[in-house]
Simulated scan of single mutants.
Amino acid sequence: MNRLDERQLLHRAAELAELLTGTVNGGASVGFLAPLSRAEALAWWEGRAADVAAGRLAVWVACDGERVLGTVSLAFPDKPNSRHRAELVKLMVHPEARGRGLGRRLLATAEAAATAAGVSLLHLDTETGSPAEPLYRSSGWSPIGAIPDYAADPGGVLRPTTIYYKRLPATALTR
């Protein structure tokens, strides 16, 4: 797994856009409606570069040579009372790489990096009943509950979302 800096994110933006369009157009609910165009996905990833540069977002990729097979990010809040926590966002695995433990490795990478940065609490949301839920549960994440009609799936249908959290070992904040 490689953590991307701003320059690397911009360099890999086209590959990340391909992963995002494939994920959304394949039916996964990660914040976008289908059909998601390559141009929209590329603009979204390029728009994340400033957050990476500012330390508000950390992005990791898993690659097979030059091809991005998966990604995960941590979003860090900017408020003084919430620097101990982060949100896990955009965990995606290319359809051809699923079922081989890559999602679990990406999740573990983000968790280890969060711990190293002094983050003691992670949270995420995912579509209730999604294929991601067993991964989070088996990785020690605890469900808080579900919010009905929280987000539209890629087809535009409102779906419930389950919120999860995970406590991490407390360390001194380093970010």
Rank of each mutant, 00 (worst) to 15 (best):
Y136L: 02
G31F: 01
I163V: 15
G118E: 01
R100K: 14
L57E: 00
V61E: 02
K79I: 03
V61N: 03
L74T: 05
G156Q: 07
T109N: 06
S130W: 02
Q8T: 13
L124A: 00
V89F: 08
R48I: 10
G55T: 05
D64C: 12
V52R: 05
T109V: 11
D51V: 05
G31Q: 05
P148K: 07
L121H: 12
A110K: 02
H84P: 01
P169E: 04
S138C: 03
E6C: 11
G156S: 09
H123P: 03
G145C: 04
L88H: 01
E66W: 08
A17W: 03
V119D: 08
T162V: 06
V59T: 04
L158M: 10
P154I: 02
A86I: 08
L74G: 08
P35W: 12
K166I: 02
L69P: 07
I147S: 01
V72L: 03
M1D: 03
S142I: 13
P154R: 01
V157N: 14
R105Y: 06
P148F: 01
A13V: 04
P154S: 12
R85L: 04
P35F: 06
S82P: 04
A50C: 09
W45V: 05
W45H: 13
V24R: 03
A172L: 13
T115P: 10
R56N: 13
A152H: 04
F76E: 02
L9Q: 03
V119I: 15
G47Y: 08
L91M: 11
E40M: 09
V93W: 00
W141D: 01
R48D: 11
D5L: 10
L168V: 00
R3N: 00
A39Y: 05
R12E: 14
A39T: 15
E6R: 15
A172E: 14
R98M: 04
T115R: 07
Y164V: 02
G129W: 05
L121K: 08
A53N: 08
R3F: 15
